Simulated scan of single mutants.
Amino acid sequence: MHPVAPLQVERFRIEQLAADRETHHAEYVLSFIVEGQLRMRHGEALQVEAGSVVIVPAGVPHQLLSGHGLDIWWLGFCPGCLGLHENQQQMAPFRQVRLGAAPAMGVAPARQALLAQYFAELQRLSASSGAGADALCKSLLSLILAEVGNAMAPTSPTRDTLVGNVLDYIQRHCCRPLSLAEVAAAVHKSPAYVTHRVKLATGASVGEWITSNRLHQACTRLLHSNASVAQVAELVGWQDTTHFIRQFRKRFGMTPGAWRRQQRHADIKP
């Protein structure tokens, strides 16, 4: 069994979009709305207009609610497969959205045609093979990410600094043994205070955030490697494979092995 391609680009034209169930992507997803309107839930209900980009970091729950007259460029990619990491500057838009920034932003009218050209060329090149095509795809992805970074307001609202620092620490250290006490010590607060602030701001506990980040990392490894379920469990911080499978089934409704098979044979959808 071969890993799924690390980068996929599709263009969708949809006259009427019906509501879908809440979902999570193992990939990082960028959607550019060329025409039409889209309603979605991404933390809160949003209406996205033509000329906007929507950012969905891997593992973040979201739901399509409705849309009409849509012409959408859809890009899904695995940063690790392309030598990228969310901590890098060009991935900053995804990081900011994960920490609470608005997931949709308008692209300046003068830049929209160029952005559409980047997507079209990336789609053409991604269908090619060879090291040269791969390098060009990565360069075009960097240009798209730069356009999105420029479109994102430098003062995009995020969660309060303490909670942002907590979630940031969890994300960077979730794949090893990690406790509430360690997280609290990293931000120089008591465990009880951190627990209260994180729960109040996000609705989830520190432990739930650790589990969520580990599951996101597990999805990436399941989709883009041939590591066994037991190996994936160990790589993302679970010493007990049975506990990992239980947590995975609780989140996704199926075992890691079944999820991997389903994702590798699933059709792309916006």
Rank of each mutant, 00 (worst) to 15 (best):
Ile72Phe: 01
Val54Asp: 13
Ser52Pro: 08
Asp71Gln: 00
Ala230Trp: 05
Cys137Tyr: 02
Glu35Trp: 03
Arg95Met: 00
Arg176Phe: 06
Gln16Leu: 10
Gln247Leu: 03
Glu35Phe: 01
Asp20Lys: 04
Asn165Tyr: 06
Ser179Glu: 05
Pro103Ile: 07
Ala5Leu: 14
Ile55Gly: 02
Phe94Met: 02
Phe252Asn: 03
Val54Ile: 13
Ile14Gly: 09
Thr155Cys: 12
Gly76Ser: 11
Val34Tyr: 09
Leu7Ser: 08
Ala146Phe: 00
Pro157Ser: 10
His196Lys: 13
Ala120Gly: 08
Ala227Gly: 05
Gly132Leu: 09
Met91His: 06
Gly130Phe: 09
Ala116Ser: 15
His25Val: 01
Ala113Asn: 11
Thr195Ser: 14
Lys138Ala: 10
Ala204Asn: 13
Gly67Ala: 01
Ala116Asp: 15
His173Asn: 07
Gln262Met: 13
Lys199Ser: 10
Ile245Ser: 06
Gln123Ala: 14
Arg261Phe: 14
Arg260Gln: 14
Ser129Val: 11
Trp209Thr: 09
His224Ile: 09
Ala230Leu: 08
Glu15Asn: 11
Gln89Pro: 01
Arg13Asp: 11
Gln63Glu: 14
Val97Met: 00
Val56His: 06
Asn87Asp: 12
His25Ser: 12
Val53Gly: 07
Gln231Cys: 00
Gln8Met: 14
His25Lys: 08
Ala5Asn: 13
Gly51Phe: 05
Gly80Ser: 05
Leu167His: 00
Arg41Pro: 00
